[in-house]
């Protein structure tokens, strides 16, 4: 069981409000991703839940019990660190067993749990090695193994994939998702990478400057961003924002349109544009264009598109995919 509830959680460092006050509900078994640009307070929020930092004010309820003043170990949570934070002087076995030893478990119980975790994570052959002799992905798995054996109420992940190379990152992403499906334990996952957020989360919490901008399912955030910040942050390449007359036509201050929601034609369309750079990826093509009075835009066309520098094209945004924002960047809903 691991339902976590934050009530008016506040954190200040000196006079600096890092987290001005967050309310959040995390259901048992949910995979929640905190996402935001660096410095948005997502890691601090995670560390507050872990107990590695004191809350300045507010309550942290785990299964209904306020743990805001408990030591980290008493909260029944496990954490996987960005740097893995393995104990370099211990073998893989002892790394995984350390928490159980601290809890005073018997040797037999420890051995059973460690072997079991090692099997799940494909680490059985490496148990006698030291972390220094492992690859990045293996270290990551040891860190996860250390978290698993304690049967925590919830797992906390602090940007766990950011030290891995791109190919390994995709693999580990799938492994962690698989692990969640198998264990069905609550997981809170911090990342600055919106792709990780979109692909892994049951629920995404978008943070900026310590405030929650929006909470919701990945596709909700994609389709119905609450404001310009969320709209720009979720989705890649980034949403295009267009102000001026074209926005006025839609009765708003600014409109946003995702690159994948603009049709490209060489003959006709709403907006004339000139290609500046075309990035050919094979399955799709990113066109960085100059759209006359609207300034630079990015457009995504599927498949191979035979366009290059200086080519003149026409763009037509899909009308029902246009997001409208007021002067404060708040979404106005679709027309």
């Amino acid at each position: 069981m691991g339902a976590i509830r934050l009530e008016k959680v506040k954190k200040t460092f000196g006079t600096l409000d890092v987290i001005p006050g967050v309310d959040l509900d995390i259901n048992d078994g949910e995979f929640v991703v905190f996402v935001g640009p660096s410095g948005c307070g997502k890691s601090t929020l995670l560390r507050l839940i872990a107990g590695l930092e004191d809350v300045t004010d507010g309550k942290i309820l785990i299964n209904g019990v306020d743990v805001a003043n408990e030591a980290p170990a008493k909260r029944g949570l496990s954490m996987v660190f960005q740097s893995y934070a393995l104990y370099p002087h211990m073998t893989v076995y002892n790394n995984i067993a350390f928490g159980l030893k601290m809890a005073g478990e018997s040797k037999a119980v420890i051995d059973e749990k460690v072997q079991n975790a090692a099997k799940i994570l494909n680490l059985t052959d490496y148990l006698e090695r030291r972390p220094g002799a492992l690859s990045g992905g293996q270290r990551q798995r040891v860190a996860i193994g250390r978290a698993i054996v304690r049967n925590p109420a919830a797992f906390l992940f602090d940007e766990p994939l950011s030290n891995l190379d791109a190919a390994l990152r995709v693999n580990m992403r799938l492994e962690i998702t698989g692990l969640h499906q198998e264990l069905k334990t609550t997981m809170i996952y911090v990342t600055h990478d919106q792709v990780e957020a979109m692909t892994m989360a049951d629920k995404i919490v978008v943070l900026q400057a310590g405030r929650v901008e929006q909470v919701g399912k990945p596709m909700d955030l994609y389709n119905n961003p609450a404001n310009k910040f969320v709209a720009g942050f979720i989705g890649s390449p980034k949403m295009n924002f267009i102000g001026g007359d074209y926005a006025k036509k839609h009765d708003c201050h600014e409109i946003g349109i995702r690159p994948e929601h603009v049709a490209v034609s060489t003959e006709s369309g709403d907006l004339p544009a000139t290609v500046k750079i075309a990035e050919h990826l094979g399955a799709e093509t990113y066109l960085h264009v100059n759209a006359g009075g609207f300034g630079p835009m990015t457009v995504r066309a599927t498949g191979e598109v035979p366009l290059g520098e200086h080519d003149k094209i026409w763009l037509t945004p899909e009308q029902d995919r246009i997001h409208r924002f007021d002067a404060n960047g708040i979404a106005l809903g679709k027309l």
Partner: peptide, 18 residues
Amino acid sequence: IPSDILEAARMDGATLPK
């Protein structure tokens, strides 16, 4: 010494002397 490692120990339930 990365403080992460000491925090990991704390998460693992180690008391300060340990």
